[in-house]
Amino acid sequence: MKAFALSAPFVLASLASAHYTFPDFINSGAVAADWQFVRETANHYSNGPVTDVTSDAIRCYELDNTVAGNTQTVTVSAGDTVGFKANGAIYHPGYLSAYMTPASPAANSNEAGLGQTWFKIWEDPPVFTPGEGLVFPSQSIQEFTVTIPKSLPSGQYLIRGEQIALHVAESYGGAQFYIGCAQVNVVNGGNGTPGPTVSFPGAYTGYEPGILINIYNLPSNYTGYTSPGPAVWNQ
């Protein structure tokens, strides 16, 4: 077998091209500028993922503590369709979800989302078919949208988009988390009570069957993908 030696720039470019960020917020079909309403992440150049679910980076992966204050907050209505656009195709197979949290004292504050206040509003899990394995609906798309729950109370929130890439998740710490947090002001809301709520870090241990999984060698008795984190809030 012939061996090939790859130069460092080529290897780094290849790795970066396989990763992604979620810099653009989508509001009723309109795509905002990079990092206009999404907090700029620490991987905005490298595109590299978070792999430690116990780190503060698992929350919003901010570049630094000045990012929240330098990010604009966009007004949306309960019931609107919003989402995130990646800076390239969502290349890796994985699990896609969206969370929200009330933002106190404001969406552009560093204190927003620090407690057990996050609730899941949407998910797009892998689909299992016996004899065929897992199919990943989110793979190779570039954007995803969700509906802000109509019964969500008005106020300022963070919306957290997350893809958990599972292509090397067969060992602890192998799952890759790609994260973006948008700052929003929700109007025309309802009187719902979101839940169950979790914290970031804290929502995951890393040992969940939907995070620690060999997607290429499933057990013979496998019956389906188990979504990590809380159940989707049933509005």
Rank of each mutant, 00 (worst) to 15 (best):
N217K: 12
Q116N: 15
A18G: 14
N234E: 06
S199W: 11
S7Q: 09
C60L: 00
A42Y: 00
H19M: 09
T41D: 01
S138I: 15
F136H: 12
H19D: 08
N27H: 06
C60P: 01
Y225I: 12
L15H: 09
D64W: 04
G180M: 08
L152N: 07
E62A: 02
S227K: 07
V74P: 03
N185M: 10
P230A: 08
V82W: 04
T117S: 12
Y172S: 06
Y91T: 12
Y61S: 02
N108P: 11
N47K: 00
Q139I: 14
I58P: 00
Y61H: 07
G195Q: 07
F200L: 15
A68Y: 05
T101L: 04
F10Y: 12
A103C: 15
T129C: 11
T81S: 13
S199T: 10
W35R: 00
T21A: 11
S227D: 09
S28D: 04
T205V: 05
P153G: 13
R39C: 02
S109I: 14
S55Y: 11
E170S: 04
W233R: 02
Q139T: 15
H44Q: 00
D56F: 03
Y157P: 11
T117G: 06
T51H: 04
W233Y: 07
A33I: 01
D56R: 05
N185L: 10
V146P: 04
P9W: 10
G190N: 04
I148Y: 05
A231P: 05
A169G: 05
N234S: 07
A103Q: 12
F177E: 03
A57D: 03
F136D: 08
A203H: 01
L15V: 14
G224V: 13
E40R: 02
V186L: 06
F10T: 14
W35Q: 00
C181K: 07
A169W: 04
T197N: 07
Y20M: 07
V31S: 01
G206S: 06
A13L: 14
N65P: 01
S28C: 04
C181W: 08
A89R: 15
A165E: 03
V135N: 15
G79V: 04
L212Q: 05
A13P: 06
G133H: 07
P102V: 13
S77T: 07
A175E: 02
L114P: 10
V31R: 00
